[in-house]
Structure formats: structure tokens, C-alpha cells
């Protein structure tokens, strides 16, 4: 598969704080590649190094065959960037912004197509400041994609959007991928990573924890658990059962994590059988990226 981005042993420090600690990964042409992690994990720093805005301290970074910090000018013709929480001029109309940003690029602009795809017709004469968060995100997405960039960077594109607007944003991002752009996206919404991304890199504390498809990541046993409901059981009862590593309780429903789910299930059932405790809705769950993530964080704290 053709590589659009390759990162080897990337490091970056701000003063005494090491924000990125030797990360390596590749992004393939035509995929939606997610970088996920909690706030302050090093996602935005990594993204900004790829965009050429920040300079790496160490390691090798190759983006579209260019060195981002040294060949920023050439790179800027070929990439599109949607920043986290930036603004355009408050009193600029949407159509003026599209027109202005089109004039920055040499080739033809796909302004009219984007107006259609993103449904911007009704807002063309609105001032940017009068738009809601969702519309602002659409406009800045349009500004980042006017020149049909080969590579599109989106930093938290669905931050602050309601669930409906978020789903719409996803389908627009998929559409841009289908047009032929490679897309790199950061997010701390695990659901977004699961549903939108073809492959995901998990970053925590400046280190890369895993890179894979969301499906493969979820096949990782660490996120699997037993889910059930019981009115009489307590967390302490469950923690002494064979093999149990962690228990989450929310009201009467439990998530039990274990090294050996089948064995633990047997022991839970016999424990409850002996004491005549009823349990309901017993399931073997695969878990979500959220669960996997929490699992990584807990492990980190334990060590």
C-alpha cells in the first residue's frame, strides 16, 4: 500500500516536558486515519509536526515525500488543515471566505461542489460570527478542502457538535475520502474513532499504545468483559472471584474484566447459585474503544 505519511521515532519537548516520546506509524493513501487519546496526550502536537507548523526535535517525518518543516510552502499547496477552535474574521460572509481562500491556490477550486455537498447555500450571506458551532465547522471544513487536497488534517472536527451534527460531519468526511483524499483526524471521542476511522493510533502520555483497525483493536482481550445485572451482588463479592482483574459498577449493572472470561463466568455462576442470588442479562461483551482505553490507562497507573 502506498504510504502518504511515515513517522519514525518522532520526539518533541516543550521545555522540560516531553510531549511526544518516540512515536512511529504510517498512514496509507486513501484511508481515514485516527489519532486518539485523552486531552494532553500529544495528539495535536503530533498533528502540528505533520503539518509543518511545529518542528520535531528528533526522528524522521515524511509527508507526501516532503519534509514538513523544511518544505512547508510546497506542502501547503497539497494539504488542507482544519484547526481546533480557530476562527475566521467575524464579519466575513461565508461566500467571501470561500472566495478568498480559493484565491490562495493555483488550481481550480471545487467551491461550488463543496457548497452543494456541505449544504452551505442558505448560509452564504451570513457572517461567520452569526453561525452556530456546527455551521462554523462545516465552513472551516470547506475552507480546508477547496483545493482538493491530497491529504486532509482534521483536529477534533466534531468537538462541540450535537450527536446529529456529528453524524453529518462523519458522512461529509467519508465523502471527502471517497473523492480521493487521505484523511488524518484527531479525536477524543472513542465512538468517532470506532465508526469513522479505517485505522486508529492510540496515544497516551506521548507514547503510541497501539495502531490497528478499530475492529482488530477490539479483538484485543483487554477490552472484553462480562456484563450482567444483579441487585444483590457487590463489587467486593466479585473481586474475590477467580481471575477477576477489575469491576465497574453502575447502579445494578456490572462490567467484570478478567484474564479468562469463561473461567470467571463459571465461578460467578457457581457463586450465585450457591447463595441463591439471581443475575440477569448475562453477556460476553467485546467492549468499545472507550473500555480499551480505560484499560490502558488503568494499566499505566498500576505500573
Amino acid at each position: 500500500m502506498e504510504r502518504v505519511i511515515s513517522v519514525e521515532h518522532l520526539t518533541k519537548s516543550f521545555g522540560s516536558i516531553q510531549a511526544v516520546k518516540g512515536i512511529s506509524f504510517h498512514v496509507h493513501k486513501g484511508e481515514i486515519f485516527g489519532i486518539i487519546g485523552p486531552n494532553g496526550a500529544g495528539k495535536t502536537t503530533t498533528l502540528e509536526i505533520l503539518e509543518g507548523i511545529q518542528k520535531a526535535d528528533g526522528g524522521v517525518v515524511d509527508v507526501l515525500g516532503l519534509n514538513p518543516s523544511r518544505q512547508l510552502k510546497q506542502l501547503n499547496h497539497r494539504i488542507g488543515v482544519q484547526f481546533q477552535a480557530t476562527s475566521i474574521q467575524k464579519k466575513m460572509k461565508v461566500k467571501e471566505a470561500l472566495d478568498l481562500f480559493s484565491s490562495f491556490y493555483e488550481g481550480a477550486s471545487q467551491k461550488d461542489e463543496l457548497i452543494k455537498i456541505l449544504g452551505l447555500e442558505e448560509k452564504l450571506n451570513s457572517h461567520f460570527n452569526d453561525l452556530s458551532g456546527g455551521w462554523k465547522q462545516r465552513v472551516t471544513l470547506a475552507l480546508a478542502t477547496l483545493h482538493k487536497p491530497e491529504l486532509l488534517f482534521l483536529d477534533e472536527p466534531s468537538m462541540g457538535l450535537d450527536p446529529h451534527a456529528r453524524r453529518e460531519m462523519w458522512s461529509m468526511i467519508r465523502m471527502l475520502r471517497d473523492q480521493g483524499s487521505t484523511i488524518v483526524i484527531t479525536t477524543h471521542y472513542m465512538e468517532e474513532a470506532e465508526k469513522l476511522c479505517d485505522r486508529v493510533a492510540m496515544i497516551y502520555g506521548g507514547e503510541l499504545k497501539a495502531v490497528d483497525t478499530p475492529k482488530e483493536l477490539l479483538n484485543n482481550n483487554a477490552a472484553h468483559y462480562l456484563g450482567f445485572e444483579s441487585e444483590q451482588l457487590t463489587v467486593d463479592d466479585l473481586l474475590i472471584v477467580n481471575g477477576v482483574t477489575r469491576v465497574e459498577q453502575e447502579h445494578h449493572s456490572f462490567k467484570v474484566f478478567s484474564d479468562d472470561l469463561q473461567n470467571t463466568a463459571y465461578h460467578i455462576f457457581s457463586h450465585c447459585h450457591e447463595r441463591d442470588i439471581p443475575i440477569h442479562n448475562f453477556k460476553f461483551e467485546k467492549g468499545s474503544l472507550d473500555d480499551l482505553f480505560v484499560q490502558y490507562l488503568k494499566k499505566e497507573h498500576a505500573e
Binding site: K73, N76, I79, F83, T86, I88, F104, Y105, F153
Partner: peptide, 16 residues
């Protein structure tokens, strides 16, 4: 103001 609100930053990743 443009520097503070990120207007200039948005220009930074264009060929301008």
C-alpha cells in the same frame, strides 16, 4: 486580534 483568535493561524497552513 487575528493573532489571538486564530485567523492568522488558519492562513499559516495555506500557500498565502
Amino acid at each position: 486580534g487575528y493573532r489571538e483568535t486564530g485567523v492568522l493561524r488558519r492562513y499559516q497552513s495555506t500557500p498565502l
